[in-house]
Amino acid sequence: MNKNDYKDIWIVAEQWEGEIQEISFELLTRGIALREQRSCALNVMVFGDDISERELRGLLARGADKVLFVKDPALKYFLVEPYAAAMLDIVEKYSPETILAGATSTGRTLMPYVAVKAHAGLTADCTSLEYDSETGDLLQTRPAIGGNIMATIKTPGHRPQMATVRPKSTSPAPILKKRGGEIVVETTTFTPISKIKKMKHIPNEDEISIQDAEKVVVVGRGLKKAENLPVVRAFADEIGAALGASRDVVDRGWLSYPHQVGLSGKTITPKLYIGLGVSGAIQHLAGMRTTENIIAVNIDPDAQIFKVADIGIVGDMFEVLPELAETLRKHEVKQ
């Protein structure tokens, strides 16, 4: 293998019912920074059946040099076999030096499948990426051992070098005026077959997703029992926040897994995080510490959560919560 035969940065955009998903724009932010360092092209691959030109142009407007849309009815939604086949086709044809995808349910399934078949290096859940200017190796930094350490991984002897990037770990690339770029629509050169049949999709109930919410109230083990949840939920509703949970809370079955914040759950970067009875295990902190404003209430003055908080209240969450709700209510009236 000759490393010099491989060039350019490619990102794997995601679409849902023809609409390009925000993670794709976040990947463009990463790609734009890397393009600066590497002086190469930043290309996008996207798989689907029916994606409007307007949607594809959006990717160019946000900084891509080329968008390659692989169009086939079998690629309408994510199915690992046809998607992997289409992606391997691109690897074969374009020899990408670097491929970035979101660390989403799609990216985290597709990328390892493709990396095995392409004998490529793959690093999961990266939070920071930069090039080694001499070797062109991508230095991929990610949390490991439950967030206790950060590890920088590289792929010295293989190409492409592939990485998945945590959703919400960076902001989406803004739309720039006056940008050129090329849209290429290709059909597949093979007949995509999927042994898996998708039968239906059950959308989340209209509860706000913790990853999309501007404010998130997170409960920890301090909740003590599931019966105490309605008080917290009412507070979250009142201030328009989504409800999140620490791993302990989910492990005990007090809230379901989609609510879990942390390395083994979701990374969140809302404008405001309010932690109630959350101790702040490293694996939890790794999933929320880049939040702009952090408030924590915990009975234990030594709780790790206070290390990342802006405001810390050492006290019983059940004594503080009613007063806090009342204070904020009065404040609202005054405004």
Partner: peptide, 23 residues
Amino acid sequence: SPTRVAKIFRPKVTRECEMTVAN
């Protein structure tokens, strides 16, 4: 193995927390 660990370090986690005791 295509990948290598280049470096391992501890994440920095601290910010100035304004603490109050509420008892």
